[in-house]
Design a protein around this nucleic acid. Structure first.
Length: 275
DNA sequence: ACACTGCCCTGCGAGC
DNA sequence: TGCTCGCAGGGCAGTG
């Protein structure tokens, strides 16, 4: 599942390939819903001839800024992938949309489950998105003191709170499980019961895990890949994610458990992360 | 304002 | 071997 490190990896792999390119056309493959409620002709009319000014990431969103101050907003959700391939390349498996560029290549969006979206947004929509999203966990503004202050107001389970994109933008199921394991915190602990020391550990763990995952170009679980098709190298460093009910804790050897928290499959070590 | 649930979607793997 | 069925989960709408 693409989370912050995966989206950042895709962003970096796209920089050389599409910044500065002009959009020639937009080609829908088989699923109009990929554009949300917008019609393909309308989006095409708005982006045709525009130049890609830069590519940013905000939380799990990839933002392709165009030279008219509008933005193509992409969310990969679970299985979305971006790739840059020659224009004459036949449609990829699960391809939903192609953006034809002026250098003979296409930016292709494919998505097995049709959850991902490619939206063309004006300023106000982008501002609303920005307003909905919480802090970037790798930015300095995401401090332990700020996190503690926010967690004190949240009676929900810590895992569900950390997944709340309105609080922290970019954490998903994989890295929350990994972070809580490193911090030694049970995923069902009530957020407002964490001590200052525990919040420090969670804060530190989130940053360490995310930084290492970005450095490793993300985790390939099921089928994540960057725009060149390279798998992430962080998967081998996962300690608990996806292992609940299957294997031993890599630290203490106790059997890892699997529960559901906030509707998400959750793996943790009952000995290292006691409630 | 927050917590919680169900929905979307479909390939895949487990089980029979 | 071939079938059925449940699982995977980010974001959002709806409810409490």
């Amino acid at each position: 599942m693409p989370e912050l490190p995966e989206v950042e990896t895709v962003r970096r792999s796209l920089l050389d390939k599409i910044v500065g390119r002009r959009i020639h056309a937009l080609r829908l493959t088989d699923f109009p819903g990929v554009l949300g409620a917008d019609r393909a002709e309308d989006v095409q009319a708005r982006v045709e001839g525009r130049q890609v000014a830069r590519i940013r990431r905000r939380a799990k969103y990839l933002l392709i800024d165009l030279d008219d101050d509008t933005t193509i907003v992409i969310h990969l959700r679970m299985t979305g992938k971006l790739s840059v391939v020659p224009h004459d390349e036949p449609p990829l498996r699960f391809e939903r949309l192609a953006i034809e560029l002026d250098d003979g290549f296409d930016l292709r969006f494919s998505d097995q489950r049709k959850f991902g979206r490619v939206l063309h947004s004006q300023d106000d929509e982008l501002a609303r998105l920005e307003q909905r999203l919480g802090r970037e966990p790798l930015e300095p503004e995401f401090s332990a003191a700020w996190l503690q202050e926010r967690l004190l107001r949240r009676p929900g389970k810590i895992k569900a709170v950390l997944l709340d994109q309105g609080l922290i933008g970019g954490l998903g199921n994989i890295y929350v499980d990994e972070s809580l394991f490193r911090a030694g915190i049970h995923p069902e602990r009530r957020a407002n019961t964490l001590t200052a020391d525990e919040v420090q550990r969670v804060h530190r763990a989130i940053r360490d895990v995310l930084r290492a995952a970005v450095a490793g170009q993300g985790t390939t679980f099921s089928s994540f890949a960057d725009a060149e098709g390279n798998p992430g190298r962080y998967g081998g460093r996962l300690r608990v994610y996806g292992r609940g009910g299957k294997g031993p804790c890599p630290v203490c050897g106790a059997p890892l458990e699997r529960i559901v928290v906030g509707g998400r499959g959750t793996s943790f070590c009952p000995r290292c992360q006691p409630l």
